[in-house]
């Protein structure tokens, strides 16, 4: 690095320190830039992972409340947005097939009836843990119709390998035809 060869060894040490400090400051600046990008995108695009710390009793999911079986799947809200409610348990998701319209705001609400599960939807950035005792909530929007896989991505026991669901994204008018008077929809595989 240093081209000049100073006569006094103390000069050499000072020079070495200067080069080193310049590098250290550059690196701190680089890291600060990365952090600034993370904060900016977090605020500007409101890209936030599920963080509401909302609790629910996993032992009574099936008896009463939001996650009873008849309330699972896609529901049309008054404002036209969709809320998808899913329960994960060893070793399946309920419902096994989820249908949502494209170009529509979708809110996922997911919880577990037993152990830690996870879910991701292939080809998207949807990715969340599914923990017993807590509800994971996140908002998204599918731009194009298509079929996606939805595996459980956290080890949940011996049958973990079989825990896959399907997500079908359909055109909004096709979705409207699926939705009956209950304003609920799910699909067949």
């Amino acid at each position: 690095m240093a081209r000049a060869v100073p006569a006094d060894p103390h000069d050499g040490e000072a020079l070495a320190k200067r080069i080193e400090n310049r590098w250290a400051l550059t690196m701190v600046g680089l890291v600060a830039l990365l952090v600034a990008m993370v904060i900016f995108t977090g605020l500007h695009w409101a890209t936030m992972p599920p963080s509401r710390v909302e609790t629910i009793n996993p032992s009574t999911l099936h008896v009463a409340g939001e996650f009873v079986e008849s309330n699972l799947g896609s529901a049309v809200e008054a404002d036209g947005s969709i809320t998808v409610r899913i329960v994960g348990q060893q070793y399946s998701f309920t419902p096994q097939c989820i249908v949502v319209p494209s170009r529509t705001p979708v809110t996922f609400r997911v919880t577990s009836a037993d152990v830690i599960h996870g879910m991701l939807i292939t080809g998207t950035n949807i990715n969340s843990m599914v923990s017993p005792g807590y509800i994971s909530t996140f908002k998204t929007r599918f731009e194009r119709p298509g079929d996606h896989l939805m595996p459980c991505h956290e080890f949940c026991g011996t049958g973990h390998e079989g825990m896959w669901a399907n997500v079908k994204v359909v055109e909004p008018d096709a979705f409207a035809r699926l939705v009956g008077p209950t304003r609920r929809a799910s699909c067949d595989l």
């Binding site: 993370v38 904060i39 977090g42 936030m48 992972p49 599920p50 963080s51 509401r52 710390v53 909302e54 996870g118 990715n127 969340s128 843990m129 923990s131 005792g133 807590y134 509800i135 994971s136 909530t137």
Partner: peptide
């Protein structure tokens, strides 16, 4: 734990 529901956004950031 970014994708976990039991920790709030503040501490994740």
């Amino acid at each position: 734990l970014f994708a976990d529901p039991e920790v709030g956004a503040g501490f994740k950031v």
